[in-house]
């Protein structure tokens, strides 16, 4: 995906969210560390453009909720959700949906923080290979991949430019 493709996909997701949720009432965007956070901010900017509503944006780190603590030592980043999520419609935002394990961890983390009215999921790329019964409500692009490929999302905020590339032989999930 080029930066134009990313821009269009995020605009479409913002429109779909507003359509399905019938506006942005009670909506909270929660980006998953690291690249879900700038994506969530961008969707919030689009929503503001389209509907002139300021939607709160938070950041969620799931390292402490992972099921593979003994297998990998992930860097723990800050979690910062500026509003109480009780009775809110939470939209989780991540860059790539793969096995679904991160999303499982994110839902555990969110339910420890409160009782949202609903949790929905938006991802820029769905690359398939789910290991859990999880699906995204909003998808930027479905990209069929082989298991040994690696999908890299790069964003201006974290990597200096916008693009999605697939690399051969990326290895472990």
């Amino acid at each position: 995906m080029s930066s134009e493709d990313i821009r269009r996909a995020l605009s479409r997701i913002a429109h779909e969210v507003l359509e399905h949720q019938r506006g942005a009432q009670d909506l909270v965007l929660v980006g998953m560390q690291t690249r879900g956070v700038p994506l969530a901010r961008r969707i919030a900017e689009r929503i503001k453009e389209f509907e002139s509503i300021e939607v709160p944006v938070g950041a969620l780190d799931i390292s402490l909720y992972r099921d593979d603590v003994s297998l990998r030592r992930s860097r723990v980043r800050p979690t910062d959700i500026p509003v109480a999520i009780d009775s809110k419609k939470v939209l989780l935002v991540d860059d790539v949906l793969f096995t679904g394990r991160s999303i499982r961890a994110a839902m555990d983390a969110l339910t420890d923080m409160g009782r949202p009215k609903s949790i929905q999921l938006a991802v820029l790329v769905d690359r398939g290979h789910r290991e859990l019964p999880i699906r995204a409500d909003y998808v930027g692009k479905n990209v069929p991949t082989a298991l040994d490929e690696e999908v890299q999302v790069r964003l201006v905020e974290t990597d200096g430019r916008d693009e999605v590339v697939i690399q051969k032989g990326g290895g472990a999930p």
């Binding site: 690291t34 990998r72 030592r73 992930s74 860097r75 790069r154 974290t158 990597d159 200096g160 430019r161």
Partner: peptide, 9 residues
């Protein structure tokens, strides 16, 4: 990769 934060510690 420019500014790519390492995922591992």
């Amino acid at each position: 990769t420019v500014g790519q934060p390492a995922e591992r510690v």
